[in-house]
Design a protein around this nucleic acid. Structure first.
Lengths: 97, 97
DNA sequence: ACCATAGGCAAGTAATGACTTGCCTATCAA
DNA sequence: TTGATAGGCAAGTCATTACTTGCCTATGGT
């Protein structure tokens, strides 16, 4: 479980996908590809992105809903919270008396 | 920066090292090895652990202080907080009005 | 001075993982 | 029904990475 989450987050492209879903939830595969391609025309192929999404889904960080020929992807930060809790629980970012 | 942190966390052995430092801060390399070895006598070699510590240090998750022939390792959760903030900031784990 | 302890460096191996290539299925519009 | 759009599957390639092996340095005790 934690294994899947951390391995999923280990890749920069997958993190960019999550960033994209924070900005706009419910994107399709092609929308995600378009965002990753950006201005310069370079970026991972559709298949590469598809495989990244599989990894993110397996980790539970992304959930997908099919609708006709479209498949929409949504972010779920729950697994990340649960999995980082073991180190982050005791103290909040900044707090002095 | 974020790259180093996530790659560091991608390995289960490195996460176990962090877990060990949560329980007892300021361990030496050999102490950490002993903990990872556990009861069954199996576990990564000293060199393997040493390399893992290098990765954790490069990510800033572990800081070390030399003292004589000993080198003590301490946990720093700061980088993890900073790097997960982009997805975890808006909402705390559970909170209702 | 000697030896044991604590740790470092570097090259080699084996496995994991990101990406490509090529083809296939399903939905919708004309 | 035909074609175009949205996505899926599987084998293969190449780079990364975890781990090993072997040797070297430095500190501390006796």
């Amino acid at each position: 479980m934690a294994e899947d989450v951390f391995k999923a987050l280990a890749d920069p492209t997958r993190r960019r996908i999550l960033d994209g879903l924070v900005e706009r939830n419910g994107q399709t595969l092609f929308e995600i590809c378009a965002r990753l391609t950006g201005e310069h025309g370079s970026g991972p192929s559709r298949q590469a992105v598809s495989q990244h999404l599989s990894v993110l889904e397996a980790a539970g960080l992304v959930v997908s809903r099919r609708q006709g020929r479209y498949k929409f992807h949504d972010l779920d930060t729950g697994p990340l919270r649960r999995v980082t809790a073991r180190w982050l629980t005791p103290e909040p970012p900044e707090s002095g008396p």
